[in-house]
């Protein structure tokens, strides 16, 4: 019994470490979608962030510079998406895919130089005061500072959306661009800033993934995490608070896929690595069965989905 409890306990923290990049991307995508812009290109932003972040961390030996480079690259790709949808009024879904395609090619081109490179991870929580905490200390030791930073950013986003004037203008832009401009707010400015902040978080998430979590660079290292984030925003019902539990679900599935074989479960590792994707699909369907997500969807976003 206690053994089982320990397994779940260890898995919980492993899931959080796994889900940290996804939490950042999903949070960023939530902010963008709250203003009425869906960005499938966050997969590209995340890839770009993972590539540039790894390159910067490798070259300088400083993981924090990797984070900065990753975030900046994420902003760059988001700016392209914003230019296409806000400037050229392109279809949002198509534009996101175009940005993703470009990032896919660019990162695999530039990333050739990073294959086999070594980076230093972000500081671990092990050996700090958290290790001495009763019960949770042993679990927290497995984490780096990335996880608490991601959780803080989620709280910050909740406060920003619900308690600040700018946050209000973002939400209004998402519900109705018309009402926003009638009340003297600029919906375009709200959307531009939210998409750029979303890109920043996507790039940061990518950098955390390559520099801190896997500490390697590989082509298409994100494996669709950014695309999954777009789906998880719906499951989280556009509520930044729910980003945390929803992403943990994915993290848990990935942890299970990695750890089940070691526990004697005989199953193809390839089929097991499909588990997180199946879980996300199931969550998406269950969410549509249980609630009507359209009710929670920012009204202006519905135009994209119809």
């Amino acid at each position: 019994m206690t053994e089982l409890a320990i397994v779940f306990f260890v898995w919980g923290f492993a899931s959080l470490a796994n889900a940290t990049p996804l939490i950042l991307v999903t949070l960023g995508e939530t902010l963008g979608q709250r203003t009425g812009i869906i960005n499938l290109g966050c997969e590209g932003g995340m890839l770009g962030g993972a590539c540039a972040g790894f390159g910067a961390a490798m070259a300088t030996g400083n993981p924090w510079l990797g984070m900065i480079a990753g975030a900046a690259t994420g902003i760059l790709f988001a700016a392209l998406h914003a230019a296409l949808v806000l400037g050229a009024r392109a279809n949002q879904l198509a534009s996101g895919i175009a940005v993703w395609m470009l990032a896919l090619g660019l990162t695999s081109y530039i990333g050739r130089a990073f294959v086999g490179g070594r980076v230093e991870a972000l500081p671990s929580l092990a050996g700090t005061w958290v290790s001495s905490l009763p019960l949770v200390g042993r679990g927290l030791e497995q984490l780096s500072v990335a996880a608490p930073i991601a959780i803080l950013l989620v709280l910050l986003a909740v406060w920003w959306l619900e308690r600040t004037r700018t946050g209000l203008s973002w939400r209004v832009a998402g519900e109705s661009a018309l009402i926003a401009s009638e009340n003297g707010m600029s919906p375009t400015r709200a959307r531009l800033s939210a998409v750029l902040v979303g890109g920043c978080l996507a790039g940061l998430g990518g950098a955390v993934l390559s520099v801190d979590y896997t500490q390697t660079w590989a082509n298409e290292i994100t494996k669709g995490r950014g695309l999954i984030a777009v789906g998880l925003v719906i499951v989280a019902r556009w509520n930044p608070r729910l980003v945390l539990p929803v992403c943990l679900l994915f993290g848990l599935a990935e942890t299970a896929a990695v750890r089940l074989p070691a526990m004697g479960v005989e199953m193809s590792s390839y089929l097991l690595s499909g588990l997180p994707y199946a879980v996300v699909l199931a969550a998406l369907v269950a969410n549509h069965l249980a609630f009507a997500p359209a009710a929670a969807m920012p009204a202006d976003l519905k135009k994209v989905f119809d």
Partner: peptide, 13 residues
């Protein structure tokens, strides 16, 4: 892939 991405972006822009 990069050329395809550029093509897609151009066609949208």
């Amino acid at each position: 892939t990069i050329l395809q991405g550029l093509l897609f972006v151009t066609v949208l822009a």
